[in-house]
Write a protein that binds this DNA or RNA. Sequence first.
DNA 1: CGTCGTCTTGACCAAAGTCAACGCACGTGG
DNA 2: CCACGTGCGTTGACTTTGGTCAAGACGACG
Lengths: 259, 259
Amino acid sequence: MRKLEQRAPLPPAERAAFLALPASIETFGARDRISEENSAARRCFFVLSGFLSRQKRANGSQQIIGFGIPGDAVDLQSLWFDRLDNALVAHSPVTLVSVAHEHVIDVCRRCPVLAGTLWHDTLVDAAIFREWTINVGHRRARARVAHLLLEVATRLQAAGVTRTDTFEFPVTQADLASALGLSLVHFNKSLAILRNEGFVETSGRVVTIRNRPALEAATGFDPTYLHLSAPPKLGPLVTTKEGAADTAESRQDVSSSSA
Amino acid sequence: MRKLEQRAPLPPAERAAFLALPASIETFGARDRISEENSAARRCFFVLSGFLSRQKRANGSQQIIGFGIPGDAVDLQSLWFDRLDNALVAHSPVTLVSVAHEHVIDVCRRCPVLAGTLWHDTLVDAAIFREWTINVGHRRARARVAHLLLEVATRLQAAGVTRTDTFEFPVTQADLASALGLSLVHFNKSLAILRNEGFVETSGRVVTIRNRPALEAATGFDPTYLHLSAPPKLGPLVTTKEGAADTAESRQDVSSSSA
DNA sequence: CGTCGTCTTGACCAAAGTCAACGCACGTGG
DNA sequence: CCACGTGCGTTGACTTTGGTCAAGACGACG
């Protein structure tokens, strides 16, 4: 669970407050639907392990619009909406920490830095959606596929799930095609091209990316949209005096853990 | 400027605090670039009037990924990122209110309900991006075009810019095509189809939607993703006691205005 | 051993992109 | 006042990309 907070430095008191929240662990199996579009959510989820996707209904079938991986706060938006606007479904066994909304709200009120961190997290989410809009709207099939694989690899590495360019991606080709706005057949053929070019290897659901720099260049993948390293510019929701001290000390934490 | 806060009820004290922020008005001409991708933003913008778009660089040219209309808080995400990940460009004369980040942060710290409102606003933004992902990825050209027009019409109505299904949309077809991931030619032909079907009329940059219910049904447009009426479930960033009173009274406001 | 789910491949078709030309309105400068 | 250029919108002809249909392969599992 600490993975989540690792993303941005937190003052120790706030971290403790967050960890002390009344939370429960929930587990789901490989195709379970975790929550439904239009349902009223009363708790929000943080992913501990497993793969899940967001889906929206359109044209009569479910379309995937994003993936959730370990470390993601996967439906913080439900905090402010009365109904979910996307469903969540598990693609592998998934374990989540779930916290009731009122507790999150309460801790946000008490912990301004934490509130900022959570807000920040939802904004990273939004940035990912922006990039998907471009990916799906402006790149052709082969580059789309590559871009998605690169994104997932990058996020998994940032989350500490893998250190190399090899990772398990337990999602069927039909689902990946849906996520990319491609037909299954065309997705498969585009993937075959990447394989023939030597950029991608697969065995079962395990994907390996080869020659990543060349692939990134070829598909225009630029990881800055994931905002992985960006520490908030100002002590979040906090003004100068104590805020400055807080972030200074906590930045040390981060750099020492990454060194 | 009050338009912005109208979206969600605010306690009077917080509204006053927000209105009292040191802000400056900035104006831009029809093709001005308001801010650049990768620049470090120090202030954020609220749109008073005019049309603008977000753009990201991809494949060597600028791609439009969203529009900003009066009442939008157009780059709140810059609050938490050190660099903007999209550019903003004006499509008509635009007037903005700009507020320095530190003041926004400061007022957020003092005004929990307001902070929640702003956060909520960024989440609505994200919801719009999700819908765009679907629009661009899973609908075909004619429906894509229609969906965009319906979205803009709906948002303009919610912002009080127009009351009818006629509105000025000062964006060239080339830009609209880019926003939809279509070529200019194909966009034009799809629009021609909608015109022939009697759903859309244009004269200059003024668009009129005809027989809106049928068009919405035909393109699968469902405005709930815009989260226009949703009042936050809990007193935002505020717990029970005073918060309950606040939301009770403000919910009345909302229901009476919709009745 | 058969069934089911998934991946793969081929043949064919529809949607969308590209190229190119033209019309039109609105400027500017002679 | 008219010639010319420029920016947009429109249309047609042709090409490419990607979708649809269909069949087969392969492995997991009952």
